[in-house]
Design a protein around this nucleic acid. Structure first.
Lengths: 269, 269
DNA sequence: AAGTGGTCTAGACCACACG
DNA sequence: GTGTGGTCTAGACCACTTC
């Protein structure tokens, strides 16, 4: 009855920090280093708790965290197996321009180009998701890094959900930051694509017409009600999104960031 | 000593599912709906466990999860307070083309355009991160959706880390999927930008030269060693990345997907 | 039927940060 | 000092699923 295989060589704890973190780290390391391959089974919680001399709860907390990170899959009776990583989806952080610019040591400024209260569908501007005639605030805003335009913002705000924005003049905060600080939201969608800028927009951004730009379209909702729709346009050569992603252990040195204006962030499993 | 304020009106559990999930849901709801605003303090664990008639562990598990999601901040002695959402960073999922195409009911195909073993820096191709003369596999691959080119892939693979790829002919699996299935990795970086396609690339993708394209550059490492560098180029009008993001509760109906070829995915706090 | 994870309890000690 | 979260234990019962 005394089986001590299943775990490739003794799993040792490093004694640093909380027990459940040690256990978590130990298995993360085995998985990342390849000692445990996808499909391999981990010992049952009871066996592990006996082996480590801890309670089952502690083991459970560690392994559950691994499952949350997607490194293993757990099923009753079937046990815990190392997950297949081939279907992993990566994530890319989308940071606020103002934060990004400031964080990289540049000077951030913004300028409101246009600010109108409109009725949806009348007067050119249109937010198809909203019913016609709905009262909206229409905004155009330019964001600068060290005096160079770096993002163009075109925004609709649902005045029925955010009536207090009527009085706001955006002297201190750009519209995006103001909204996040004052209006609650519960869900968000993003759409990201590449576009060739129109002549008009090219002029505002100080680039050549037709140049490739990143367009981020964000829709924000609160309890199912649309709050704001915004399109953010970045010149392709002056802005790019950067993401850094690590599986668990910190033993891999962080690669150097690439490109100009790169923002960095950490994602988890 | 009997204080029952602090929580705006009775926090009631809905009786569905695990206790800790019920507690988690109750507070998520209060926060998302605005009854609890950023800066508001939650009652201490002990008070909550008394109020709900559960153990402190159970409360702890619920609130800790809220903290992981970023909805609240916890500090010893200071207690638990609702977090400020203004510095929230959104995430965008980056899915594999093959999965994306298949999942949307289209027919996925790929074609290897080029496959060469090279020594780094000799013969045109160059992976600056690698030392000169390092043995690499160079690949060019085109991905199709219903017969239309949808992504161009240019890839370097470090043959010292993945020697077994020398024999691989990619009959069944495209290079990306093959690598994920066979070669371990521990960290990844992404860079995303908009580019105007060159004439050469435009020809391969069947679009006009200069058209805006999304470029995703991915570097994969294993224990600090570069494994592969790949550039994925999508025509701007044939592909876009879509991200869906919700804070906790599922009470907000998922907005309808936008645009052609849209992939959807869920991110969490 | 039996093994595995999922959840819960009652109690405990500790580390930290604020007054 | 003292209140708060952070962690841990020993034990328990249950739900699911595969054998």
């Amino acid at each position: 009855m005394i089986e001590e295989r299943a775990i490739p060589r003794a799993v040792t704890l490093d004694g640093e920090g909380p027990l459940f973190k040690q256990i978590e780290r130990a298995f993360t390391s085995l998985i990342v280093k390849g000692s445990l391959k996808p499909g391999d089974r981990l010992p049952a919680e009871e066996q592990l708790s006996a082996q480590f001399g801890t309670s089952r709860q502690t083991v459970n907390k560690a392994i559950t965290e691994l499952a949350n990170q997607g490194l293993v899959t757990r099923r009753r009776r079937a046990g815990t197996v190392v997950a297949d990583r081939s279907n992993h989806t990566f994530v890319l952080p989308i940071v606020d321009v103002a934060d990004d610019v400031a964080q990289n040591g540049h000077v951030y400024e913004f300028k409101i180009l246009e600010r109108r209260v409109i009725l949806n569908g009348r007067g050119g501007a249109d937010w198809t998701e909203q019913e016609e005639g709905a009262p909206l605030l229409y905004l155009e805003c330019l964001h600068f890094s060290d005096g160079r335009p770096i993002q163009f913002e075109r925004r609709f705000v649902n005045l029925r959900v955010a009536p207090s924005i009527r009085e706001e003049t955006f002297r201190d905060l750009p519209p995006g930051k103001w909204l996040f600080a004052h209006i609650p939201w519960s869900s968000v969608t993003h759409r990201l694509r590449a576009i060739n800028v129109t002549e008009d927009l090219a002029g505002k951004l100080g680039i050549s017409p037709g140049a490739a730009c990143l367009s981020v379209e964000r829709r924000t909702y609160h309890l199912g009600e649309p709050v704001t729709l915004v399109q953010l346009v970045h010149p392709g050569d002056r802005y790019d999104l950067n993401g850094f992603f690590t599986q668990g252990t910190d033993d891999a040195p962080a690669p150097t960031p690439t490109g100009p204006n790169g923002s960095r962030a950490r994602g988890k499993g």
